[in-house]
Amino acid sequence: DATRCSICQKTGEVLHEVSNGSVVHRLCSDSCFSKFRANK
């Protein structure tokens, strides 16, 4: 199964994995990581 970025939905390489309870968010770049943090 292809890994997909939680923010931009791009498949491919994942730079960050953030687990939040039972959910793991995968983020492909620092910019997506920043957006993820801002959205929480």
Rank of each mutant, 00 (worst) to 15 (best):
D1Q: 06
D1E: 15
D1C: 14
D1G: 15
A2R: 10
A2L: 14
A2Y: 04
A2W: 07
T3I: 11
T3E: 14
R4L: 05
R4M: 13
R4H: 11
R4N: 14
R4I: 15
C5A: 00
C5V: 00
C5Y: 00
C5I: 01
C5S: 00
C5E: 00
C5P: 00
S6P: 12
S6A: 14
S6N: 07
I7E: 04
I7M: 07
I7P: 01
I7Y: 14
C8Y: 01
C8D: 00
C8V: 00
C8Q: 00
C8S: 00
C8P: 00
Q9T: 07
Q9G: 08
Q9L: 06
Q9V: 01
Q9H: 07
Q9P: 02
K10N: 02
K10E: 10
K10S: 06
K10Q: 07
K10D: 03
K10G: 10
T11M: 08
T11Q: 08
T11D: 09
T11R: 05
T11H: 14
G12Q: 06
G12P: 02
G12I: 07
G12H: 07
E13D: 07
E13L: 04
E13F: 13
E13C: 00
E13S: 07
V14W: 02
V14A: 08
V14M: 11
V14Y: 03
V14P: 11
V14N: 10
V14I: 11
V14S: 08
V14T: 11
L15Q: 14
L15H: 12
L15F: 10
L15R: 13
L15K: 14
H16V: 03
H16R: 09
H16C: 00
H16I: 01
E17T: 10
E17D: 06
E17M: 04
V18D: 07
V18N: 04
V18H: 07
V18T: 08
V18A: 08
S19Y: 04
S19M: 09
S19H: 06
S19V: 09
N20S: 10
N20F: 03
N20Q: 12
N20C: 03
N20H: 11
N20L: 08
N20W: 03
G21Y: 04
G21Q: 13
G21P: 04
G21D: 12
G21H: 06
S22C: 02
S22D: 03
S22I: 08
S22F: 05
V23I: 10
V23K: 14
V24R: 09
V24P: 08
V24F: 05
V24E: 11
H25M: 09
H25V: 03
H25T: 11
H25Q: 11
H25K: 12
H25W: 06
R26T: 11
R26P: 10
L27R: 04
L27C: 13
L27F: 12
L27D: 02
L27W: 07
L27E: 04
L27Q: 05
C28S: 01
C28T: 00
C28W: 00
C28A: 02
S29N: 02
S29I: 00
S29P: 03
S29G: 05
S29F: 00
D30Y: 00
D30V: 04
D30I: 01
D30L: 04
D30G: 05
S31C: 08
S31L: 11
S31V: 11
C32Q: 04
C32E: 06
C32H: 02
C32L: 01
F33S: 12
F33E: 15
F33A: 14
F33D: 12
F33G: 11
F33R: 14
F33Y: 10
S34R: 13
S34H: 06
S34D: 15
S34T: 14
S34F: 08
S34W: 08
K35W: 01
K35V: 12
F36Q: 12
F36N: 01
F36P: 07
F36M: 05
F36H: 11
R37L: 05
R37K: 15
R37Y: 05
R37D: 14
R37Q: 14
R37S: 13
R37N: 14
A38E: 12
A38N: 03
A38F: 06
N39H: 07
N39G: 12
N39S: 12
N39Y: 07
K40A: 11
K40S: 14
K40P: 09
K40R: 13
K40W: 09
K40F: 09
K40I: 12
